[in-house]
Nucleic acid binder design. Structure first.
Lengths: 116, 116
DNA sequence: CTGTATCCTTTTAGATACTG
DNA sequence: CAGTATCTAAAAGGATACAG
């Protein structure tokens, strides 16, 4: 994956709390913003996300999703069928990140990218 | 982290270049967004940034600044006085990141943070 | 299908010392 | 003041195998 916003790798920095800090914590990780981007559109299942994201391993995807769930950004719904289905969606808190993701996307499109 | 863009070998819907990718590359690193945030306000010298950022080492700050310079986001101006002064500012390209940074900051303030 | 468990590599950041 | 040079550590992610 390309480099991304990451949390400090060494020790934590003594924080002079910048208004960006909160958001940066939420979006930490190389895949997090992209995961949320796909979830903005509509709820998606684990396998869908994995395919959409192209290249993420199930270990990492699972890890990020649990992190987002713990932060209250994403909710997880298990549909008890066989084979099992699990659907992820943004919570209302998660939807508050849309302005950030949209701004990022607009920049990308401005810079001449294809759409997702 | 140079990822390994996966060659979309054969399969149906492989590797989407997501519109977020461009921005995520620009903001890579634990300190990058915050550095740009402070530079949004006004040009700043190396030592000012270091103080503003509270906790960054000169090694990392220097490294990130050179990276941003290479990407055309930040410009570096040396003022030949003694002791030397070096001032950094956003380029016009760098200013395009403002909407993203502003969206992040708004989220932080909404979540109840102190200002920078 | 939706994950977990290992093991390993890469990427950054922190600590510290030193220079023009 | 504005960096550079080393060295170390830790986090993140990748590969792979396997389970419910």
């Amino acid at each position: 994956m390309t480099k991304t916003i990451r949390p400090s790798s060494g020790r934590a920095a003594p924080p002079p709390d910048c208004p960006l800090d909160h958001c940066l914590r939420l979006l930490a990780g190389a895949w997090t913003a992209k995961i949320l981007w796909y979830l903005c559109e509509e709820p998606r299942r684990f396998g869908d996300l994995r395919r959409d994201l192209g290249g993420i391993t199930s270990k990492v995807l699972s890890s990020r999703l649990r992190e987002l769930e713990a932060k209250g950004i994403v909710s997880r719904e298990v549909i008890p069928v066989s084979p099992p289905q699990v659907s992820y969606r943004l919570t209302s808190l998660g939807k508050e990140l849309r302005p950030v993701l949209d701004a990022m996307a607009r920049l990308g499109e401005k810079a001449g990218q294809s759409s997702c």
